[in-house]
């Protein structure tokens, strides 16, 4: 948008205010920012390399040199978690991006034009919904072959239905409003109406959905990598770190415990922010959940 009206600015300030009053959302945002900064500045934060092995130092507990200990190959766990954060963020953002781009576009077209194309798109979405999301992603990875790229594609596809349906229902409600009819009357193109008038009104629920979707995507990707279908060792991916360190759990649990905590706090903080956003953006939900 080229210009932002004062009304929109005031609305945005209100959203921020109500976000800040929500303690959970603030705590979530702080944890999230810490993880993101840690991932971005990983090379400056740690003197170790994520894949450099040091067998003599294997399976050590936390110490001043290795804050979170070392894994079965003597690699610094903290370093691997920081670098792993890069992968998780990338997987989360790209897969949600895929789902948003494809699902959102499908939902917008289906809702705006209706009729045959609506039917076609929504039946396609129904087919994707025929399996629970994680199972669908698993099945897609099974046919594409293991690898982080394929995990991103699979989770992206599995998330299409949520965005398509959300966008479609948003468009359906906005479509009937007077100012959209007015835009049609003055001869705006469909594309312009969709992008300038319909999209901004549908954006709030989409933001909430994307935030919660990010959490789900990171969780699912870690699960798939844990099953050996995502990132392959020695990649410092959180799920794969847990899987490869698991046989040593009777000797040392740190290589399993800490990557799991990293997944847990990332997903938890995203859910907290998502919940907070929903409460702030949706005036109907008065009570916080």
């Amino acid at each position: 948008m080229a210009t932002t009206s004062t009304l929109q600015l005031r609305q945005r300030a209100k959203v921020f205010k109500s976000m800040f009053r929500n303690k959970k959302a603030v705590v979530g945002a702080v944890i999230l920012i810490m993880f993101a900064l840690g991932a971005i500045f990983a090379p400056f934060l740690t003197p170790y390399e994520p894949q450099r092995q040091n067998i003599r130092n294997r399976l050590q507990g936390p110490s001043s040199e290795h804050w979170l200990g070392t894994d079965q190959f003597g690699r610094d766990i903290m370093t691997r978690i920081l670098y792993g954060g890069r992968l998780s963020l990338r997987v989360g953002f790209t897969s949600v991006g895929i789902a948003l781009a494809i699902g959102g576009t499908m939902g917008m077209i289906a809702g705006y034009y209706g009729g045959f194309i609506d039917n076609l798109f929504m039946r396609f979405v129904d087919v994707l919904l025929a399996l629970p999301g994680f199972l669908l992603a698993l099945a897609i990875v099974a046919s594409l072959g293991p690898g982080l790229e394929n995990v991103i594609i699979a989770i992206g596809i599995a998330n299409i239905p949520a965005f398509a349906r959300m966008m479609r229902s948003s468009v359906l409600t906005v479509k009937e409003l007077d100012y959209v009819s007015a835009s049609i009357a003055v001869g705006c193109s469909d594309f312009r109406i969709l992008v300038r008038h319909v999209l901004p009104n549908a954006i709030n629920p989409i933001i909430v959905l994307a935030t919660l979707g990010l959490a789900g995507a990171i969780l699912a990707a870690a699960g798939l990598s844990f099953l050996g279908m995502g990132a392959q060792p020695p990649t410092p991916e959180w799920g794969s770190m847990i899987a490869t360190a698991r046989p040593f759990i009777r000797v040392a649990h740190y290589p399993v415990t800490f990557p799991g905590l990293a997944i847990f706090f990332t997903v938890l903080s995203l859910n907290m922010v998502g919940d907070g956003l929903r409460d702030a953006l949706d005036p109907r939900s008065t009570h916080t959940m």
Binding site: G239, I242, G260, L270
Partner: peptide, 15 residues
């Protein structure tokens, strides 16, 4: 409850 939703099941099982 929020923590329960975000818990990676495979990690929780190992723990």
């Amino acid at each position: 409850a929020l923590a329960g939703v975000g818990m990676p099941a495979f990690w929780q099982g190992i723990m």
